[in-house]
Design a protein around this nucleic acid. Structure first.
Lengths: 214, 214
DNA sequence: ACCTGAACACCGTTCAAGT
DNA sequence: ACCTGAACACCGTTCAAGT
């Protein structure tokens, strides 16, 4: 019945388990202590206060997000593949990613992907500010999309749902559109469509960046 | 010194003031009561518990976000103007928008803009599923961008900043790119660039949607 | 109809005291 | 070096009691 000495790693693992299973609100110091079979105050000795525990948890998630490998034979395809891989990785850890986002480490998390993207932009012939802008555009696109997507999934029951809101009168006599907007979003498809549009535009050197104002 | 009878509106206004001034964490029932000069328990009579108070607060924000007027002479320009107006409105209420997002009412908030966008897509000749997809692509783009943007602003001091991370070796011998990625983001410009790319692609009927896979 | 204080079950955190 | 319980200052919420 005597437990082996508590370690910081052990605390972290239990904390991650709690967050994954019941969300970040369930991660209280007292519950964690019960889970570990120790006094609340022992946790403080190993990982400091709750704030630094969350920091460590998020740090670990950022490390886990490290690897991405572009695939495909053109810069366009390879950029799209990085973006898709990133989306997948983000979607596998929804609560932890939300915590990373809340704590402002989204950029750090994105760095390996950013480096891969830089390489592809160079291959595609982009340099300097133009390449930097292209990299960031893709980054914002992916992270933003995943945040919105996740939000939609977490709250499938909007109080007046899109479905109820998009009855025929408001849809401008376009029943197919009304049906489409009332139905669920094909997020995968929407993601690829927007991404393709963005990447195509970024890699075409003809258009002046900033585009026509109207 | 006797205060006039407390009203639900009064409670809501004080709550909004607290959130705006000190963030959502500062909105505790006890602090709110002190602010209002009443007992904590009075608040419960007027607005129910904390959860429903936050609901009401968010509801009010969604209502406030109602109006947007497209400007410009082409559908392209008018769509871009709606997106920009929306971004501006979202950025004026950062904490409240975060709360709307957390509570899953982002869609409801976007509805008036969505209706305006549908109109413009129709004018541009898009119909049915294609139009619906275009509307949603713009919606995801704007909301996602603002979420990322807001996150970056809230945490300007990344522990290893992008600046430190992008020293010359990692940047692939492109000092201008390194400088650009190390510096601050021109969010306005990035927003417009990505948006222009997206809208241009959505409104061009030549390209098959879904694009080349690589 | 509206307001109140007391009480309950939770929090995070500190600290002196143990081994 | 590691663990503990007691104590403090906070929470949200309920409820019986007041007017």
């Amino acid at each position: 019945m005597t437990r082996t000495a508590l370690t910081g790693e052990e605390v972290l693992a239990a904390a991650a388990r709690l967050v994954r299973a019941q969300g970040p609100a369930a991660l209280t110091m007292r519950r964690l202590a019960t889970e570990l079979g120790t006094a609340v105050t022992s946790i403080y000795w190993h990982v400091g206060n709750r704030e630094s525990l969350l920091d460590a948890l998020v740090e670990r998630t950022v490390r886990e997000m490290g690897e991405i490998h572009p695939v495909g034979h053109t810069p366009h395809a390879r950029i799209v593949s990085v973006a898709r891989a990133l989306r997948t990785a983000l979607r596998e850890r929804p609560q932890l990613i939300a915590m990373v986002h809340e704590r402002g480490l989204t950029e750090r998390m994105f760095l390996p992907a950013q480096q891969a993207l830089v390489h592809e932009m160079h291959t595609a012939g982009l340099r300097g500010e133009l390449a930097a802008e292209a990299v960031r555009a893709v980054q914002f696109q992916v992270v933003g999309f995943v945040l919105v997507e996740r939000n939609r999934e977490r709250s499938p029951e909007q109080h007046p749902s899109e479905g109820e809101l998009w009855d025929s009168p408001t849809a401008g006599h376009d029943p197919a559109l009304a049906r489409a907007l009332a139905g669920p979003v094909d997020a995968e498809r929407l993601f690829v469509v927007s991404l393709e549009a963005l990447v195509t535009s970024l890699l075409s050197p003809g258009e002046p960046v900033g585009g026509p104002a109207g």
